[in-house]
Simulated scan of single mutants.
Amino acid sequence: MDKSEVHIYTDGSSRGNPGPGGYGIVMEWVGKPYRKEFSEGFKKTTNNRMELLAVIEALKKLKKPNIFAKVFSDSKYVVDAVEKGWVFGWEKKNFKDKKNPDLWIEFLKQYRKHYVSFQWVKGHNNHPQNERCDFLAVEASKKPVLKTDIGFEG
């Protein structure tokens, strides 16, 4: 089995909640000099949607199945939902009365392709990759042309 391991750093942002938003991703392969950055901005969204979308988009970038991925996020919403198992209970109830079911369903699809663990990091605490993700997310939200967050705006 391929023991490839990647560290994924993510952050989401919205200026206003809801408001223009974006996400930032930094991916680093463990033991290799490989590092990539990704970001995208949206016209109207929420902070939590961007935090979760960042993780989804990062996992989608993994080309092979069964990669060991450690996700570093400053979002308690995302980290706790997975690490404390809440999302699996929500899934059993078809996400009834939960926000962002479209993203949680997509997250679980991507999550189950790999070995994913989460580590919460304190935001705005001079963590270099987290700071970079925050910068990417905010800058993406300021682009002159922004995508529509279909799940939020319909």
Rank of each mutant, 00 (worst) to 15 (best):
N66F: 08
V78H: 08
V138Q: 13
A137F: 01
H127T: 07
S141E: 07
Y77V: 01
A58L: 03
H114M: 04
K92Y: 09
A137M: 04
L59R: 04
K70Q: 15
A137T: 05
K122L: 07
H127A: 06
K93V: 02
S117E: 15
A69T: 04
W90Y: 04
D134T: 03
W104A: 01
N66I: 00
I105C: 01
F95E: 02
R132M: 08
D102Q: 06
A140M: 05
E106P: 02
S141D: 11
E106L: 01
H124W: 02
E83S: 15
E83T: 15
W90R: 01
F68D: 14
K113M: 12
W104T: 00
V71L: 13
A58P: 08
K70G: 12
G123Q: 06
V121F: 11
W104H: 05
K63H: 11
D102M: 00
D74A: 05
N94P: 02
A140H: 07
K98P: 06
V87M: 07
E83G: 09
I105N: 05
I105L: 03
I67L: 13
V79L: 12
N125T: 01
V71T: 12
S117R: 13
L136G: 12
K92L: 08
V79F: 12
D134S: 11
A140D: 10
W104P: 00
V138G: 12
R132L: 10
K96M: 07
Y111W: 02
K63L: 06
G89S: 09
K142M: 14
D74V: 02
K76H: 11
K143G: 13
K70I: 14
V78Y: 10
L103W: 04
K99L: 09
F88Y: 15
K63F: 03
V78L: 11
S75Y: 00
Y115D: 15
I67T: 15
V116C: 12
D74Y: 04
K109G: 06
A69G: 10
K96T: 02
V121T: 11
D80M: 07
V79E: 15
V138A: 10
K98Q: 14
K98I: 01
V138P: 10
A69N: 07
E83I: 03
D134C: 05
P128Q: 10
K109N: 09
